[in-house]
Protein backbone atom coordinates (compact mmCIF):
# COMPACT_ATOMS: atom_id res chain seq x y z
CA UNK A 1 0.00 0.00 0.00
CA UNK A 2 1.40 3.38 -0.98
CA UNK A 3 1.53 6.49 1.16
CA UNK A 4 -0.92 8.07 -1.28
CA UNK A 5 -3.42 5.31 -0.58
CA UNK A 6 -3.29 6.04 3.17
CA UNK A 7 -3.57 9.81 2.93
CA UNK A 8 -6.46 11.46 4.84
CA UNK A 9 -7.73 12.95 1.57
CA UNK A 10 -8.25 9.54 0.02
CA UNK A 11 -10.28 8.49 3.05
CA UNK A 12 -12.78 11.32 2.70
CA UNK A 13 -16.28 10.30 1.55
CA UNK A 14 -16.02 12.04 -1.80
CA UNK A 15 -13.01 9.91 -2.65
CA UNK A 16 -14.69 6.65 -1.68
CA UNK A 17 -14.29 4.21 -4.50
CA UNK A 18 -17.36 3.94 -6.73
CA UNK A 19 -16.77 0.21 -6.42
CA UNK A 20 -17.76 0.27 -2.75
CA UNK A 21 -20.77 -1.98 -2.30
CA UNK A 22 -22.50 0.24 0.25
CA UNK A 23 -26.02 -0.42 1.48
CA UNK A 24 -27.53 2.24 -0.76
CA UNK A 25 -25.50 1.00 -3.72
CA UNK A 26 -26.81 -2.54 -3.22
CA UNK A 27 -30.38 -1.31 -2.80
CA UNK A 28 -30.13 0.70 -6.02
CA UNK A 29 -28.94 -2.43 -7.79
CA UNK A 30 -31.90 -4.38 -6.47
CA UNK A 31 -34.26 -1.60 -7.48
CA UNK A 32 -32.92 -1.50 -11.02
CA UNK A 33 -33.15 -5.29 -11.38
CA UNK A 34 -36.70 -5.31 -10.06
CA UNK A 35 -37.77 -2.42 -12.28
CA UNK A 36 -35.97 -3.35 -15.49
CA UNK A 37 -35.88 -7.14 -15.45
CA UNK A 38 -38.38 -8.64 -13.06
CA UNK A 39 -41.41 -6.32 -13.42
CA UNK A 40 -41.50 -6.43 -17.25
CA UNK A 41 -41.33 -10.23 -17.13
CA UNK A 42 -44.41 -10.55 -14.93
CA UNK A 43 -47.62 -11.13 -16.84
CA UNK A 44 -50.06 -11.02 -13.93
CA UNK A 45 -51.92 -7.67 -14.26
CA UNK A 46 -51.98 -7.28 -10.48
CA UNK A 47 -48.47 -8.41 -9.57
CA UNK A 48 -46.68 -6.54 -12.36
CA UNK A 49 -47.57 -3.00 -11.19
CA UNK A 50 -46.90 -4.07 -7.62
CA UNK A 51 -43.39 -5.05 -8.65
CA UNK A 52 -42.89 -1.61 -10.21
CA UNK A 53 -44.16 0.05 -7.04
CA UNK A 54 -41.80 -2.14 -5.03
CA UNK A 55 -38.93 -0.81 -7.11
CA UNK A 56 -40.04 2.76 -6.41
CA UNK A 57 -40.17 2.13 -2.67
CA UNK A 58 -36.75 0.51 -2.83
CA UNK A 59 -35.32 3.55 -4.65
CA UNK A 60 -36.72 5.96 -2.06
CA UNK A 61 -35.27 3.80 0.72
CA UNK A 62 -31.90 3.59 -1.05
CA UNK A 63 -31.78 7.36 -1.37
CA UNK A 64 -32.44 7.83 2.34
CA UNK A 65 -29.81 5.47 3.71
CA UNK A 66 -26.60 7.45 3.55
CA UNK A 67 -27.58 10.50 5.61
CA UNK A 68 -30.30 8.87 7.72
CA UNK A 69 -28.40 9.23 11.01
CA UNK A 70 -27.13 12.72 10.22
CA UNK A 71 -30.63 13.95 9.36
CA UNK A 72 -32.04 12.67 12.65
CA UNK A 73 -29.18 13.96 14.78
CA UNK A 74 -29.56 17.43 13.26
CA UNK A 75 -33.33 17.39 13.61
CA UNK A 76 -33.14 16.32 17.25
CA UNK A 77 -30.64 19.10 17.97
CA UNK A 78 -32.89 21.68 16.32
CA UNK A 79 -35.90 20.54 18.34
CA UNK A 80 -33.87 20.59 21.58
CA UNK A 81 -32.86 24.19 20.87
CA UNK A 82 -36.50 25.22 20.46
CA UNK A 83 -37.53 23.30 23.59
CA UNK A 84 -34.87 25.22 25.52
CA UNK A 85 -36.34 28.50 24.29
CA UNK A 86 -39.82 27.33 25.16
CA UNK A 87 -38.99 26.34 28.75
CA UNK A 88 -39.18 29.87 30.26
CA UNK A 89 -42.52 30.48 28.52
CA UNK A 90 -44.16 27.33 29.85
CA UNK A 91 -45.90 26.69 33.18
CA UNK A 92 -43.50 25.89 36.00
CA UNK A 93 -45.05 22.43 36.30
CA UNK A 94 -43.53 21.35 32.98
CA UNK A 95 -40.72 23.84 32.44
CA UNK A 96 -38.17 21.61 34.16
CA UNK A 97 -38.93 18.79 31.75
CA UNK A 98 -38.14 21.12 28.89
CA UNK A 99 -34.87 22.30 30.43
CA UNK A 100 -33.86 18.66 30.78
CA UNK A 101 -34.85 17.84 27.21
CA UNK A 102 -32.96 20.84 25.89
CA UNK A 103 -29.72 19.61 27.43
CA UNK A 104 -30.28 15.93 26.65
CA UNK A 105 -28.26 13.99 24.09
CA UNK A 106 -29.07 11.28 21.61
CA UNK A 107 -28.69 7.99 23.48
CA UNK A 108 -27.18 6.24 20.47
CA UNK A 109 -26.71 6.38 16.71
CA UNK A 110 -28.84 3.45 15.61
CA UNK A 111 -31.71 4.73 13.48
CA UNK A 112 -34.23 3.04 15.78
CA UNK A 113 -32.73 4.81 18.81
CA UNK A 114 -32.61 8.17 17.03
CA UNK A 115 -36.22 7.71 15.90
CA UNK A 116 -37.36 6.93 19.42
CA UNK A 117 -35.58 10.02 20.72
CA UNK A 118 -37.02 12.05 17.84
CA UNK A 119 -40.52 10.92 18.79
CA UNK A 120 -39.91 11.83 22.45
CA UNK A 121 -38.74 15.32 21.50
CA UNK A 122 -41.57 15.81 19.02
CA UNK A 123 -44.15 14.95 21.67
CA UNK A 124 -42.67 17.66 23.87
CA UNK A 125 -42.70 20.05 20.92
CA UNK A 126 -46.39 19.39 20.25
CA UNK A 127 -47.25 20.01 23.90
CA UNK A 128 -45.18 23.19 24.02
CA UNK A 129 -46.73 24.56 20.85
CA UNK A 130 -50.24 23.89 22.13
CA UNK A 131 -49.41 25.84 25.28
CA UNK A 132 -47.78 28.68 23.34
CA UNK A 133 -50.84 29.00 21.09
CA UNK A 134 -52.96 29.66 24.14
CA UNK A 135 -50.43 32.07 25.57
CA UNK A 136 -50.54 35.80 25.39
CA UNK A 137 -47.63 37.97 24.44
CA UNK A 138 -45.19 38.50 21.63
CA UNK A 139 -42.61 36.03 22.93
CA UNK A 140 -45.05 33.12 22.86
CA UNK A 141 -46.34 34.13 19.45
CA UNK A 142 -42.85 34.53 18.00
CA UNK A 143 -41.75 31.13 19.28
CA UNK A 144 -44.92 29.51 17.96
CA UNK A 145 -44.10 30.94 14.53
CA UNK A 146 -40.54 29.68 14.76
CA UNK A 147 -41.83 26.20 15.57
CA UNK A 148 -43.93 26.27 12.41
CA UNK A 149 -40.86 27.42 10.46
CA UNK A 150 -38.86 24.55 11.96
CA UNK A 151 -41.57 22.12 10.87
CA UNK A 152 -41.24 23.43 7.32
CA UNK A 153 -37.49 22.81 7.43
CA UNK A 154 -37.94 19.33 8.89
CA UNK A 155 -40.46 18.35 6.23
CA UNK A 156 -38.28 19.66 3.43
CA UNK A 157 -35.28 17.68 4.67
CA UNK A 158 -37.34 14.53 5.07
CA UNK A 159 -38.91 14.76 1.61
CA UNK A 160 -38.72 11.38 -0.16
CA UNK A 161 -35.95 11.43 -2.74
CA UNK A 162 -37.09 9.77 -5.91
Amino acid sequence: MTDKGMSPKSLSPENLSPGNLSIDNALHGLEEFLRDRIAPAIEDPYVSPMARLSAMVLRICANSVDDAAELRVEENAAIRAILGEAAPLLPASIAGQYHDAATSRDPGLKISILDAENHRLRVLLVTAQAVLEDGIGPAAKALDQRIWQLLETVEAKRAPRD
Binding site: V57, I60, A142, W148, L151, E152, E155, A156, R158
Partner: peptide
Protein backbone atom coordinates in the same frame (compact mmCIF):
# COMPACT_ATOMS: atom_id res chain seq x y z
CA UNK B 1 -45.81 1.69 1.82
CA UNK B 2 -45.68 4.23 -0.99
CA UNK B 3 -48.72 6.05 0.41
CA UNK B 4 -47.12 6.21 3.82
CA UNK B 5 -43.90 7.64 2.45
CA UNK B 6 -44.78 9.76 -0.55
CA UNK B 7 -48.40 10.78 -0.04
CA UNK B 8 -47.74 11.39 3.65
CA UNK B 9 -45.02 13.88 2.77
CA UNK B 10 -47.20 15.50 0.11
CA UNK B 11 -50.00 16.25 2.54
CA UNK B 12 -47.78 17.34 5.43
CA UNK B 13 -46.12 19.73 3.02
CA UNK B 14 -49.55 20.90 1.89
CA UNK B 15 -50.63 21.46 5.50
CA UNK B 16 -47.55 23.59 6.08
CA UNK B 17 -48.29 25.66 2.98
CA UNK B 18 -51.89 26.14 4.12
CA UNK B 19 -50.79 27.11 7.62
CA UNK B 20 -48.37 29.63 6.12
CA UNK B 21 -51.24 31.28 4.23
CA UNK B 22 -53.11 31.40 7.55
CA UNK B 23 -50.23 33.36 9.06
CA UNK B 24 -48.83 30.59 11.24
CA UNK B 25 -45.23 31.35 10.24
CA UNK B 26 -45.59 35.10 10.75
Amino acid sequence: ALSGIRAGHFHRDLILKMMRTRGAMG
